[in-house]
């Protein structure tokens, strides 16, 4: 394939990726392309496959079929390491920090893909790259929590720790699974601004699952709608009217019967 301008803009190209768990088709074969500078919202009711898609993009689970290219490389099947960590980073629905470790080490875990094994080991005793972690925590406004045991932090603070870890990791594509589901509206806006800033700049992109059309229009450039593992729409955020949104989420009875029978 020739590398024209638009090809190199593509950070992430998925061709026919699909995933089933036993008999449940979590994601039907899906094509999508995410270019640098894009902020993509994933929408869809519970069980529609949003988390599955994000995990596939993050390389945490492998697709049953199809191909996934990250910055032109097929890294999806590679072992974890520096390259992949530098390309995609994921912030989870439950922030998934190690509760027993001090905040500092949870943030520095973002470096584990880059550090040598030896460095990873001694960092537990003499923290390495400490300044990077301090700066990230300061940006998140929780610099004073650096030595606190992570389980002692509030949910909102833990989310900030998880984002600080993502900052330290420095990946180009930021994936976020329901980053605002437990936040009040004001904090939700703050959080999305932080993520937008993190995924801003050249060569970067953001993909996040979101349930509010207001937040989609305000913070995202594009919206992908999923239902029962199938792509429903892939449209610019400005086109997400409440009607489009309701149709994605509110199945009336006859439609539900069709979808249920289709499985």
């Amino acid at each position: 394939m020739s590398m024209n301008k638009s090809d190199s803009d593509h950070l992430l190209v998925a061709t026919g990726i699909s995933k089933s768990f036993g008999r449940v088709e979590a994601l039907a074969p899906l094509n999508m392309t995410i270019s640098q500078g894009e902020r993509v919202a994933l929408a869809g009711p519970s069980g529609s496959g949003k988390t599955t898609l994000l995990y596939l993009l993050a390389g945490i689970i492998q697709p049953d079929a199809g191909e996934l290219l990250l910055a032109g490389q097929n890294l999806a099947r590679q072992r974890p390491g520096k390259e992949k960590a530098g390309l995609v980073g994921l912030i989870h629905q439950q922030y998934d920090l190690v509760p027993h470790l001090p905040v500092l080490h949870n943030v520095l875990a973002g470096r584990l893909g880059q550090w040598s094994l030896f460095r990873s080991m001694i960092s537990l005793v003499w923290p390495q790259d400490r300044q990077v972690a301090e700066e990230a925590l300061a940006q998140m406004g929780i610099a004073d929590k650096i030595h606190e045991r992570t389980s002692h932090l509030s949910g909102g603070e833990q989310q900030r720790v998880a984002i600080a870890r993502l900052m330290v990791q420095g990946s180009r594509v930021i994936l976020a699974d329901e980053p605002v589901s437990s936040l009040d509206p004001v904090r939700a806006d703050d959080m999305l601004e932080i993520l937008t800033a993190l995924a801003g700049g050249s060569g970067r992109a953001l993909v996040a699952s979101i349930h509010s059309p207001r937040l989609m229009r305000k913070h995202f450039t594009r919206v992908i709608g999923l239902r029962e593992g199938h792509l429903e729409f892939d449209i610019p955020a400005a086109e997400v009217t409440d009607r489009v949104f309701e149709r994605l989420y509110d199945l009336d009875q006859s439609e539900a019967a069709v979808w249920g029978g289709g499985n």
Binding site: A58, G59, I60, R79, P80, G81, K82, K84, A85, G86, V88, G89, L90, H92, Q94, Y95, D96, L97, V98, P99, H100, L101, H105, A109, G110, R111, L112, G113, Q114, L117, S120, M121, L124, A162, R165, Q169
Partner: peptide, 26 residues
């Protein structure tokens, strides 16, 4: 969950042990 997050940060299985399994099991 935390192990998966560590893997997503590029940690090898041994690093996942050091930063995840060990502190949580300790």
């Amino acid at each position: 969950g935390p192990l998966r997050a560590l893997r997503a940060s590029g940690a090898s299985p041994f690093r996942v042990l050091l930063y995840g399994r060990l502190p949580m099991a300790l």
